[in-house]
Design a protein around this nucleic acid. Structure first.
Lengths: 218, 218
DNA sequence: CTTTTATTTTAGGCAAAGCTAAAAATTATC
DNA sequence: GATAATTTTTAGCTTTGCCTAAAATAAAAG
């Protein structure tokens, strides 16, 4: 089992995030990792030599199966650590991302396995995103955007998009958390905002909020 | 709050380990960090520019107050992570060192504080070594070597030296753990080995084992 | 189907961090 | 106190990983 630098792992992660198994352009990758195009050209050349990506000059970069395996293992670590930080240490879900970006580079299969167990073999992280299994399998991506339901439906929040800290702040001030259940009261035909009802009252969610909150019928 | 590279932190840690506040020779430092002398000369020059050490060429390197603060904060993280790994994840005390060496470089005051709380504000790590406080204060270094007691004493194991994996294996096979209590039955005048007694029987410990096991009267 | 614009790659630099081999300084020995 | 042995530093090279500026290629516009 080879070991990789943090920079390499960051490129792999970015590639997986941007394109999954599909090719990604130099520019997009540069933007994502926060480097200049020329640095990216070099970096992906190195990754190519390690058989983690296929590079077609001027065309794009694509993860190899080996690269995809690595990407998933990093994502697994990232999401397990986020779960740890929220569930065990009491961090807010808006605070954990930068910390998990450091922790995801810790190298130890054993540690990951034990952490996974310690956390109760979770399938989803504190945002509701699926945690890749040990073997690379992905648990289902949960829920549909709130706007996709019809008035009268009973729903349970199961996932939120990472739409920036202001979004998370808004969730916090509105006291919206994973697991909360609501009734869909109204869906505005004018601006696609939604009225949610709970035992304690009702409130309106803007279209942009709704687009980043996912739920299932309950 | 500035941020340091892992390499820098490793040098600081090594300096603290070898000399504490006292100066350390280039050679000793090189040995400890596993680099050549020439690399060390460069490295300490960099550290000097950051005001973490004072360098007197050909004479030695010494931590500054700032360097000592950093060293203690790294040690604090190291020992807290070791505690986490043993207490929460069930690692053996012989396995945790290399992992903690990775985890100790994670940068976040908040994380350290929360981890500390989560672990129940421990004063000592799984080996019984003191965990530096937030403000740099050091809890007491516990116990005396087993050979320092007199026959008849009731003792409790409170600390073990990190004397390599074979030592830890031996502790494991003899089922010796922190917190265990014994009676000192005999101290050999011939080879300084010691006979310990417990409710379930008695056994002998070699002089070298004793030298690395620390206890208090109980 | 050229020309302009945008993207990507090359070329050349820089800093961190390691190395080896040679020079300089210190310490030990006679 | 002069010489030998050890330690430390300098000098010069390597790799990773980033940068800027210039050249090359691809895409868009006329």
């Amino acid at each position: 089992m080879k070991t990789h630098t943090e920079s390499e792992e960051n490129y792999i992660k970015a590639l997986y995030h941007l394109g999954g198994e599909q090719p990604v352009s130099n520019g997009d990758l540069a933007q994502r990792v926060g480097a200049k195009g020329s640095s990216v050209t070099q970096a992906v050349k190195r990754l190519g030599q390690k058989d983690l990506v296929n590079v077609v000059p001027y065309k794009g970069v694509q993860l190899t199966p080996k690269g995809i395996r690595l990407a998933k293992s990093i994502l697994r670590k990232h999401r397990l650590w986020e779960t740890f930080l929220v569930d065990k240490l009491g961090f807010g879900w808006d605070e954990v991302h930068p910390l998990a970006e450091q922790l995801e580079h810790i190298q130890s299969e054993e540690l990951v396995d034990r952490l996974f167990q310690f956390l109760g073999s979770p399938k989803h992280d504190p945002h509701g995103d699926p945690i890749p299994e040990r073997d690379g399998q992905m648990p289902p991506v949960l829920g549909q955007p709130i706007g996709a339901f019809t008035a009268g439906a009973e729903i349970r929040i199961v996932r939120v998009e990472d739409a920036g800290s202001e979004f998370f702040d808004q969730l916090d001030t509105m006291n919206i958390n994973l697991g909360n259940t609501y009734e869909i009261r109204t869906i505005s035909a004018f601006d696609a905002s939604v009225e949610l009802g709970s035992p304690t009252g009702s409130f309106w969610l803007s279209q942009s909020m709704c687009a980043n909150i996912y739920a299932v019928q309950s």
